[in-house]
Every structure is written in structure tokens, then in C-alpha cells.
Design a protein around this nucleic acid. Structure first.
Lengths: 337, 337
DNA sequence: GGAAGCCATGTAAGCGTATACAATTGACGG
DNA sequence: CCGTCAATTGTATACGCTTACATGGCTTCC
């Protein structure tokens, strides 16, 4: 059952059927009704593939993420989905498993699928995989980066104020009176790793508090590294009085480690996390965290992307930086020791 | 840049280029190498849309879910994604927002997008929306239901043993000595609502314990209903000594209510939840829950679907029922009163 | 009354691919 | 030497759609 069938049954040409379906061009009221009736009766649905081939757009975007399992992802997706559905776009998922190789093939695959644009939370911030996957299409292909800005690409991005957020959190701990503040940050080569570390360092400097090298440790953004580094920190001869976790998962690891070691939060040590999610509010004690508007990030990124797609003459690269907010709950207090 | 361009540059016909790309049919080693070289040099990628139109399959499946926000979803998706990537399939997302109207349009949309098959966690278990969205394509279109079986449709499904899981949990509480066991279950019209309720009732009957009508309340699977119903239950003249939460979110609500009321778990009341997720293990106390293999559900469903897609002559409808497992942690103990 | 313009519709081309079929070549057995 | 067959390649069509262009009829305005 295709347009030609409908045309035949309704006694019109395929052009008219197409015009009816797309409500484009002039068509007589009676003809319109007649065609619509036939379509309805026959249960005909247009073939979007054929349409895509013809009009050279798929009304589909690709959403590339490093890890489906990270709670960050569904939050962002929520925002993306809401604007996509508004504009009639579909979302094809691409999971890179935090792996550069996979990332490369995902980009390539998505490009083959002829998505109209790409939303990407990349692993490879050097942009190698992207450059490779895009060969020949660079610049002509709408892309918006989320959470990370890739050097050397003239594409829009939606990120958060990592430095500001980390500064705020550290400043908060300093104001409570903490001086021995540890930070477990993510890989410094990544925006969310390096940026948050810088925020922490800046706050320390602003208060004139010396940074103890032993207190600043690099994790890999996963739960386990938070767990292990926290254990290490608290085993130090002079342990910190507060710990700042560089992302949600590592903070969970820290939390677990403290519980396992029987160290009370916030009585023996204060804890601040980066990223809020379901967890924060339900734990005992509820965690004080730097919250960021994840759903908004998705929403704004999708809007940016779609406007690029539908209005290609824009040129200025836009970089949207969203603010963070410190959610003060009960995992911090003045230092006791 | 298309096949014709490659053909021209390589000095062969498009047919040969196609044969090289798809490694189908006989082609001389030298010709093969030559064409491949040109493809490489030109950075040509085949147009999958055109291919899809021609071969009448898209190598894409639709995944319809009621709520992106539910932690259940990414878990299932993880399983789905892993097998899709193995078989070279893409995933298009469809979020129904737990809304029947949206569900209808999502199904219709996905059908238009010409996905090769559909994975569905449906809201409307009566199947009305599905029947409507599928008009004309019923039976000819591969579908696998996840978590819920839709009456009146001859499609495969992957569900869990809701009754067994609920039985096991209730039995566990009974063995601990509880008799006043409350259950906050989901809508009985839904598989996970009715099934779990039945499991609870069966266990009670098996032990010859009378079911107190006041202790059995229906929620809507959302956090808030769990919160409110738990408050209600614990305000009863004779409150229950144990509560069984019908899903993850409602259990969270119950947990919160108990905390707000200052009721200690498990000392004053025992708590068992249905569905494990990140949360369970981190709460204080860690929750005892009925766990189900969510990722496996996705994996198996996707495998089922893809085998249907690629081997359409199979006929027998398969209904896979996965077992649950009771994860005993620290939210239950013998009744005190 | 005729030029101009609009409306409704049809005709046909082409988007980029896969593939049935035909054509050419060379090998090989009788 | 001829028929047969396999290997290699090319030609041409169709997948289902949109749309530029053509056509014919009607209105409108000088």
C-alpha cells in the first residue's frame, strides 16, 4: 500500500496525494476530503524512508553517550526527548561505553544512518574519533556537544560552570571552618575533571589556604575509585576534615567507604558531592551537593541542534554555560578536630 | 558523493561498487581493491536511507517505554543496547509518558519510521492503542512485549515472575514472625500490580494468616503514593509490623514517610521493596528487596525480537518468564510488638 | 475581448541503492 | 572445434516519495 495505490483508488495523481498528506500547495476541498477518506479506509501510512531519501532529511537526531548506566544520562535524555517530540524528531541512541574505539564506530554509524544532527557527550576530548568519523562532512553536519567542549571544532556546546560550582562547594566548606579539605576529582584531561579541580584550587587560594598535595587525588569518575581513594584519605596520619567528591558515582563510593570505616558524616568528616540525583536526598545524612540542571542541558542542547538543522545559515558558534547550585543538606558541619 | 561517483572514479559500474560494499556476489580481487581504495580516498559512506528503501529493512528497532525517569528503564535499555549493537541494529526511542494518547502516536510514528520491529513496555494493557497504531500491519510486524503481556495479541513477551517474587518476599516476612504485613501494590489492572498482589495474598493464605483489608492498599507506582499510603498505614490504630512496597518508586516513598515519621527501620517496622537499583544498597538501612534481572529482560527481549525480524517463518508465540531473587539486606527483622 | 494571473491537477524526474538479467570472457571436456 | 559453465562486469529497473514544470480552466481587469 503506497501513494500510488491511494492515488489510483481516489482517482487522482500521486502528486495530489502527496499534497494532501503534507498539506502543501493548493488542493480543492472536495479532493482533499476524498483523498483523506481513502487514506483512512486503507489504513495507509506514508513511507518515511522514501520521504527521507527524497527530501534529504530524516527528522532524526543521534544522541551519543558514554554510558547508559550513568544516572546523568536519563536526566539529560529527558530534556532532549521533550524538545525532540515537540519538533517531531526521533532519537537514535549511540552508546560508546566510554571507549574511544566504539565512539568512532558509533559516529560513523550514525552518520551513515543519515541523522540530521548529533548530540554528543564525548569521551575523546581530543576529537580524534570525531574527526575521523566525520571525514568529508565536517562543518556541514550540525553537532552540539553536551557537558564537554571539544577543542578544534567549530560546534555549539552546552556545558556547566564546573569551576564555579566547585568553587562554591569548596568555599562553603571553608566558610564552615574547614581547612583540611580533600578533593577526589576526575581525570584532568576532561572538562568536568579539570574544571572542577580548578574551582577547588581557586577557592583554596582565595582563602589563602594551602593545598595539601596528599589531599588532592585523581579518580576515574567511577564508584570504585571514590571508594578506594576515600579509604586512602581517611587512613592518612592527618586525615582531612572534609571531602569533596568530583562526581556522583565517586561520591557514592566515598559515602560507602566512610560507612564501611565507621566514620560518621558529618560528625567526623564532612562530605560534598558534585551532581545531584535520586540518591542525594534519600541517604542518611542527605548529601550536600553541587547540583546542575541536567534536564535543562539536554533541552537546550536539543533546541540548539534543531535550530541549526532547520536554519543552516547561522554561523556564530554558541557556547552555553549553565550555572550550578549548591544544595545544602546535612552532610556538612564545622570541623570537630 | 554517492555510489555512482565512486563507480565513475574507479571506472566500474555501480553494481560492482555495490557488490564490493556488501561483499555479495563475485568480484575480482583487483577490482575489489581498486574500488575500496577509491571509497577510502573519497571518504564515501553509503546512504543507508536509500539502502533501506531498496531492501525494505532499516536495521532499526523501536523501543517504547512509559517513563524515561524510571530507573527501570536504563537498566533494560542496557540489555537491549548490548544485543542491538551486536547485530548491527539501531534503537529509536519512544517515550509514552505513561499516557495512552501519547502511546498511540508513538506507535504510529515508529511504524512510519519503518522500524523493523518494536520492543514495548506498554501502558495500555488492553491493547487498544496498539491495535490502533498497528492497523493493517497486525501480525506482520515483529513485536516483543517487556514486563507486561498484552491480552489478545499473538506476540512474544518477556516478563518476570511477579507472583513468585511477591510470594517469596511475603513468605520471608512471615517466616520472620510477622503477621500484620501490609502491602502497597500497584494498579491491579496491570501485570506488575495484580501479579505481585496475588503473590502476597497467596503467601498469606499458604501460612493461614488472615489478610487485613486495611493493610492492602493500591498505589499508582509513583513515589508520592507510596509516601502517602505508608503514612496512612502507620497512623492506623494497629499499624502493620512490616510493609511490602510494590515497586521501586513506591518503596522509596514508604522509606521517606517512615523517616519523616521517625519510625525506625527495621526496629519498629520491617520494609521489603520490589525492584533493586542503585539505591537499595546505599540506604540506611540497606533495603531488602525482590530483585529482577532487568538488563537480562532487555537482552532476551531484543534477542527474541531480532530473531523474529531475521527469521520470519517462526510461528509459536514465546512467553519468557524470568525468575526473581530476594536480596536480603538489613531492612527486616522479627516483629517487636 | 483578450492578456494576465491564479487555482487545481497531472506528468515525470530523480533521491541512492540493490539486484535480476544480460553480456562478455576464458576455461575445459568431449 | 564447439558447447557448457563459471566468473566478472555492466545495464537498467524499482523501491515510494516530493516537486519542478506543464496544462487547462477560470476569474479579473483594463
Amino acid at each position: 500500500m503506497n501513494q500510488r495505490d491511494i492515488a489510483r483508488i481516489a482517482g487522482v495523481s500521486t502528486a495530489t496525494v502527496s499534497r494532501v498528506i503534507n498539506q502543501k500547495g493548493n488542493v480543492d476541498r472536495d479532493t482533499y476530503a476524498k483523498v483523506l477518506k481513502v487514506i483512512e479506509e486503507q489504513g495507509y501510512v506514508p513511507n518515511t524512508i522514501a520521504k527521507s531519501l527524497r527530501v534529504r532529511q530524516t527528522k532524526t537526531i543521534g544522541f551519543v553517550i558514554p554510558d547508559i548506566g550513568n544516572p546523568f544520562f536519563p536526566e539529560v535524555l529527558k530534556g532532549v526527548e521533550s524538545v525532540c517530540v515537540q519538533h517531531g524528531y526521533n532519537i537514535i541512541l549511540g552508546n560508546t561505553n566510554e571507549d574511544v574505539e566504539t565512539e568512532r564506530s558509533v559516529v560513523r554509524n550514525l552518520r551513515q544512518q543519515r541523522v540530521d544532527g548529533l548530540l554528543m557527550i564525548l569521551v575523546d576530548e581530543r576529537g580524534e574519533t570525531l574527526r575521523w568519523g566525520l571525514r568529508g562532512a565536517e562543518g556541514r553536519f550540525p553537532i552540539v556537544f553536551i557537558d564537554r567542549h571539544i577543542k578544534g571544532f567549530q560546534y555549539d556546546s552546552v556545558v556547566i560552570d564546573n569551576e564555579g560550582g566547585a568553587f562554591q562547594a569548596t568555599d562553603y566548606l571553608l566558610r564552615l571552618g574547614h581547612r583540611r579539605i580533600a578533593m577526589i576529582h576526575g581525570p584532568v584531561t576532561m572538562t568536568p575533571g579539570g574544571g572542577r579541580l580548578r574551582g577547588y584550587l581557586e577557592a583554596m587560594r582565595a582563602w589563602g589556604v594551602e593545598v595539601v598535595a596528599e589531599y588532592v587525588r585523581e579518580g576515574d569518575f567511577r564508584t570504585k575509585s571514590g571508594y578506594e581513594l576515600a579509604k586512602h584519605l581517611m587512613s592518612l596520619p592527618v586525615p582531612p576534615t572534609a571531602i569533596f567528591g568530583g562526581n556522583n558515582l565517586m561520591t557514592m563510593g566515598i559515602f560507602e567507604a566512610l560507612r564501611d570505616m565507621g566514620i560518621a558524616v558529618p560528625d567526623q568528616v564532612s562530605l560534598v558531592g558534585f551532581d545531584d540525583f535520586l540518591l542525594g536526598a534519600y541517604l542518611s545524612p542527605p548529601l550536600t551537593v553541587v547540583d546542575r540542571p541536567m534536564s535543562d542541558m539536554g533541552r537546550i542542547a536539543a533546541e540548539l541542534l534543531i535550530s541549526r538543522i532547520e536554519n543552516r545559515d547561522q554561523t556564530a558558534v554558541r557556547k552555553v554555560v549553565l550555572p550550578t547550585a549548591l544544595r545544602i543538606r546535612q552532610s556538612c558541619r564545622e570541623p570537630q578536630s
